[in-house]
Design a protein around this nucleic acid. Sequence first.
DNA 1: TTGCTAAATTAACTTGGGTTAATTACAGGG
DNA 2: CCCTGTAATTAACCCAAGTTAATTTAGCAA
Lengths: 197, 197
Amino acid sequence: MIRREQLYFSDALEAWAQVPDSQWEKLLGLATVNRLDENEFFLMQGDSPSQIALISSGIFRIFCTTEAGDEKILAFRTRGQFIAAYTPFIENRPAWYAIQALKPAKVFSLPLKEFNRLSSGHPCWERAAKEYIIQLLIEKENRERAFLTEDATTRYLNFKKNYPDLDNQIHNFHVASYLGISPVSLSRIRREIKKSS
Amino acid sequence: MIRREQLYFSDALEAWAQVPDSQWEKLLGLATVNRLDENEFFLMQGDSPSQIALISSGIFRIFCTTEAGDEKILAFRTRGQFIAAYTPFIENRPAWYAIQALKPAKVFSLPLKEFNRLSSGHPCWERAAKEYIIQLLIEKENRERAFLTEDATTRYLNFKKNYPDLDNQIHNFHVASYLGISPVSLSRIRREIKKSS
DNA sequence: TTGCTAAATTAACTTGGGTTAATTACAGGG
DNA sequence: CCCTGTAATTAACCCAAGTTAATTTAGCAA
């Protein structure tokens, strides 16, 4: 049985704190603990998404694959964040991206059907679920702005500033993929930065 | 006074159709009709967003400006769609993008404060408001995927396919900006397409 | 019809970032 | 401590797209 206290490890979950005990009980009864090995997939491209999970430990990447077979990372997810193919679930489509653990991970999983029903159940969940979607939207808007208005060097510097811990824990070629450039190009950028400092 | 029937001009508003008359009355009392000239701004970059509007006619562009002063179009909006700086409003920040009419327009405006209160008022609004946010998210996800996995030619062809009417009504340099390329480059792409067909 | 203005096209040149391939650095296993 | 495999770096080359600038096209007003 998952205890409520296990979930309180992130500021990002502030909104969930207002949920009364009775509602938590109901939710946690539906949740399960999952452990994933390094490189194990939480969701494969093409699968029908069924679960949403809260990350307790580990690092995940969300990525899609081009016609040519190259993998492009859309986002990283870590402790306190959720992983799910939310919009494919809403649109009732197979996921066009995959979610994979880059480090051994522990997550709390819940069926997306239940997550989606939250809003229509007790009103306390409404704010939390809406907050989750808005955060996704803000993340994507930021990324759009970055791609349109910043060069690769600026995007890399901002990535390091915004995710200083991630930068040390994952491969450079994953960072490059996230930034939309090749590993070779990232290496050149890193050299230039080192040179000018 | 705005009549409810005036608003039924888009499939996108399906979700709103389930709202009972009494709630509509309340909402429409807060809404106003606005007319904008060509090139008039609905919202300027740096302003605090206060209004959300449903477009009855006209075409809008949402765009931001780079350090170098270049304008980059994030989205177009037309009949049946909403215009607002929703996430800046939620985060209580000035808008980092502008919204401008490219054609003379008529819109129904509502204070964002009211729009945001909808969810916490009568539950019927919940679904509609959430639907709005999810649509924004899906749009941005699509755009991210397109930028990462498609070349400029593919993005242009998809744009023409998805927005055949828009392509004819707006300048090519606006399309280029939306696609993240220069007008010169778009012109080259158009020539290649013509040649090979 | 003639200008006038702005947009679109085209050509010439430049460049950021991709690709390939060789080299170096590094970490884990025997 | 050395292998071995993988990641990162570096160099050489290439190309898609940017930039600048000249030319053509299109729309509009007088």
